[in-house]
Design a binder for these strands. Structure first.
Lengths: 360, 360
DNA sequence: TCCTCATATACTCAATCTGAGCAAATGATG
DNA sequence: CATCATTTGCTCAGATTGAGTATATGAGGA
């Protein structure tokens, strides 16, 4: 998504123009010099998100890595013989590994950086990861044959602002990132990074110096921590930056391979999309109260919303219609039940839950 | 992008659950049964867009297919040995084929549907296409060693509304799509399509029955025409739908393989993004007048904007600052020159040119 | 039974934003 | 020197937004 992701490898591209023997003739059947070790494998990865009450969760499978269990997203290779499309491949892998049949799913991004896959051995095929975001309503009765729901914010403790600004930001993250940005090597300029300086990135990502918090920058924040060597995945890769933090704790719970990066992409995309497309309803039961809807949106965004305005927006926006029933035992006055008006999809070009965060 | 792209293969996924011999064990190094014909090749494709005055253009290379030249996007396979990342691979291919060094580039989507690549022969490796959007300022002096700039709207004549609603819509497209939707087989329900009926899709895409035109739905419109067999690429694939239109002209200029689909994705994404990120400036010279800026935005969006409001938004939004100079010979009062204020990227979370189309 | 509590729902209001228009300024052109 | 095309400044009503106040209603405990 990020405008700042766009120049990732400007530098490299400009330097090794990498002229080969191949002529100006193009065509995908030229140049089949794909020898064994360079073969490509496409990994399909699903970030399946649900929301139980006000608790956003991600479906993980446990993956033993060096005798230590590590959380992983459901994933598997794309095999064209068996899977007609990328998305059917994904759905089949998920069903096979977890027993879950996906509903809403959208492609996120295709990651191809060498060196983000913890592969020591270069004889392995090169892996490219395609990440998907899937949304599922939470249903206790659905029997999973594999996998577990895990709270999303255990992986990104700095992303949940519902009980105020997470202490970890000012007490741990910002100080250590500040130390890191002071180390920006003047002699060895940043390679493969964004057009921004480390200091600017810190400001934009964590809203220091009064810059405001942008809840959509989930991936940018994770990548910044990764580059600074402050997440386990970076240490695993033996980035030199990580060494200086020896013995200090790293941030958030780690995942297998680049799965936490995919999850960060998924959460960022969902936070953005929830504002202009009616995707929240994929997380809701058929009938719900406006308060439940709000709690779900807040859980995803990681912040609180102004209640009365939220109701006004959702109702007047034609996103929902009352079912006629009410829900009692809410701890207060009974709440009207609503259902999603799927007709809005035909009526308005970008119907969504447009909201602004408050620091309530 | 599309919310409606998300359920593409729900049906298939639900039906052939495709249980195999593989256990619940996951891991990307299991199942290397990739035999010759099923090998995967990743194609990198660049939709490089520029704008000369009010003329949006795409960089193409000519590709001989069956003795007939066909426009293609610069593209080539991703070879992990030579390319550190997907994006460097793309940049190298573009430089090699056209002599152009890309600036801004962002990944769009990874297409993997079998059968959209005009491959008769199943012994070819299966091709997955990763599409990129790149933006370049138009500079006559830049010498291209290959490739040509082509007007974008030659490929999508229905997308340019700057001289009013294109006649092709009401006179050709809607009548033929209407005939097509009447043919919706009740016995053989739509497979692998969106959750919407053909009639609903026609309404949403082409704004019939008073539904308004959404300029961002470029891909959805192209896909609808494709499914209806109304573009050459569909006919090429021998879709049965195409046969009924024999001898009637198909819509827009065709491209090689699935390149027009990638271009449609690129234009749709650019139209969306121009409204919330300052990407237009990648298409502008360093100094420009507000009128030139507006003309460029209008060229991309394919519609006219209210001039005074456009200026107000751009200026008060802090996106630009005056250089102090003026441009004369504009045919009227000399215009102040402006430059992009790149600091906005640090200040505001989503600085863009938020605009609404008018039917001027 | 009745009071308290928590939530639901309704309504208000000022500040801002948006869409659309008019009018004067200014240099080029014939 | 009048005309023209464009820039630039300004107005104004209607819609939207952010935030606050007040009342309704059922649950649960004293």
């Amino acid at each position: 998504m990020g405008h700042d992701m766009s120049r990732h490898d400007d530098v490299c591209a400009a330097q090794n123009t990498d002229k080969t023997h191949r002529e100006g003739i193009i065509g995908s059947d030229a140049g089949h010099d794909r020898s064994g070790p360079a073969a490509i494998e496409i990994g399909l990865n699903a970030a399946i998100i649900t929301c139980a009450k006000d608790n956003p969760q991600i479906l993980t499978v446990r993956q033993p890595v060096d005798d230590r269990p590590l959380e992983a997203l459901p994933f598997g290779p794309f095999t064209p013989i068996r899977h007609r499309t990328l998305e059917t491949g994904l759905r089949n892998w998920v069903a096979e590994q977890t027993g879950l049949h996906l509903g809403y799913a959208e492609q996120l991004y295709t990651f191809g950086d060498r060196g983000r896959h913890a592969r020591a051995d270069d004889n392995e095929p090169h892996a490219v990861s395609i990440g998907y975001l899937a949304l599922n309503r939470f249903d206790e009765s659905t029997a999973l044959t594999g996998g577990h729901w895990q709270g999303i914010y255990a992986f990104f403790p700095w992303e949940d602002w519902r009980s105020g600004k997470p202490e970890i930001i000012d007490e741990e993250i910002v100080p250590r990132l500040t130390r890191w940005l002071a180390d920006q090597p003047a002699d060895r300029p940043e390679v493969a990074a964004s057009p921004f300086s480390r200091a600017d990135r810190l400001r934009m990502c964590f809203g220091t110096d009064g810059t405001q918090w942008d809840e959509e920058k989930v991936l940018e924040r994770y990548e910044l921590l990764f580059e600074a060597g402050l997440v386990e995945e970076a240490a695993r890769e033996g980035r030199e930056a990580a060494s200086q933090w020896e013995s200090l704790p790293l941030f958030g719970r780690a995942m297998h391979l680049d799965h936490r990066r995919i999850l960060a992409t998924a959460l960022g995309r969902l936070r953005a999309k929830i504002k202009y497309r009616p995707v929240v309803f994929e997380l809701m039961d058929a009938d719900f109260t406006l308060f439940e809807l709000q709690k779900t949106v807040e859980a995803i965004l990681g912040s609180h919303l102004h209640k009365q305005n939220f109701r006004r927006l959702v109702e007047s926006g034609g996103l929902v219609e009352p079912t006629g029933d009410v829900r009692t035992h809410t701890g207060g006055r009974p709440a009207k039940l609503f259902r999603f008006r799927s007709e809005v999809l035909l009526e308005r070009p970008a119907p969504g839950v447009r909201v602004h965060a408050t620091l309530n």
